[in-house]
Nucleic acid binder design. Structure first.
Lengths: 157, 157
DNA sequence: CTAATTTTGGTGTTATAACACGGTAATAAT
DNA sequence: ATTATTACCGTGTTATAACACCAAAATTAG
């Protein structure tokens, strides 16, 4: 039990089952993230940049404000302004301003941004199918359920 | 199903179960990591610094070389040299040199480093017990098993 | 209606991470 | 033995992240 984690961390034992679970979550997340990073890099994107594009695509052709983007990010980054700056520079996104609330600077994805996401999609889909190759549908559901139990109490309304 | 993840990412739906699993892994990892970061910060440490100290403690009073540290890290960092630099500066670790292989620069944890880890331990233990409060022993085992299935093929001997 | 408070973006600074390179030692090949 | 190759560590540079602060606009309170 836990032999794979032990091998991965070259560790003899873990203090508790709780720690083992947490380390496994970290290791798996790092593993998947690295695989994703490889793909993004091939297309000149970073993980946060990709995430912002994906979020913006969800509200195309409208956009989102800085705060709305942050609240939708997998890893909420305080530095969204500059992440968007880089996307704008590459013409993958563009800024416009709200009439109603002049504080808001809204960002929307461009055609070029959408095209880039479409180009990346097959690679990401193939990567994600790794899950199906390892877990049954029942297991996938059970896995998601358990993970949601762990962080669920802390999700805001 | 998946309601908690949807709420967290303010998303209406996900393209596939595979994506849902992956996002849940990322979100849970980020959640747990943030909680850990809070603790580390109270003690003036960063996550990678803590990780290196934890690894070095595993071979106290001997040390490890740079490569050995990297291979044991949850998130292998190329920049271990400078992470160790900072630990040495704070006298939490110290360098010494191998006689046998003069290329090797070995690092070991100091007494002060061990004491710091012991001071942090209760806070981390309490945090980790979050897992026990959410999952049964059977679930914990099943969760670890499934995660190990996902990355297991990629662990080197 | 005015003043205080809150929310929102942006910016300056510092610290850290990522990447590539170079030097030195060990190992393998000739 | 001598050379070539590989392994290991450190460093310089660039890019990004984290943190705190500031200005402007909206909201709330009096």
């Amino acid at each position: 039990m836990g032999e794979i984690l032990k091998k991965r961390l070259k560790s003899k034992r873990f203090e508790s089952d709780d720690l083992e679970v947490i380390l496994n979550i970290f290791v798996t997340s790092y593993f998947l993230r690295s695989k994703h990073d490889e793909v993004f890099q091939r297309y000149g994107l970073t993980m946060p940049q990709y995430n912002v594009l994906r979020i913006l695509k969800g509200n195309y052709p409208e956009g989102y404000s800085r705060c709305e983007i942050i609240s939708r990010m997998v890893e909420p980054a305080p530095d969204v302004t500059r992440i968007v700056d880089r996307l704008v520079k590459e013409k993958l996104a563009e800024r416009y301003y709200s009439e109603k609330d002049k504080r808001l600077s809204l960002t929307r994805i461009t055609e070029k941004g959408i095209e880039l996401l479409n180009k990346i999609k097959p690679d990401i889909d193939e990567l994600n199918s790794l899950i199906s190759s390892k877990l049954t549908n029942t297991e996938k559901k059970k896995l998601s359920d358990m993970l949601e139990k762990i962080y669920g109490d802390y999700v805001e309304e």
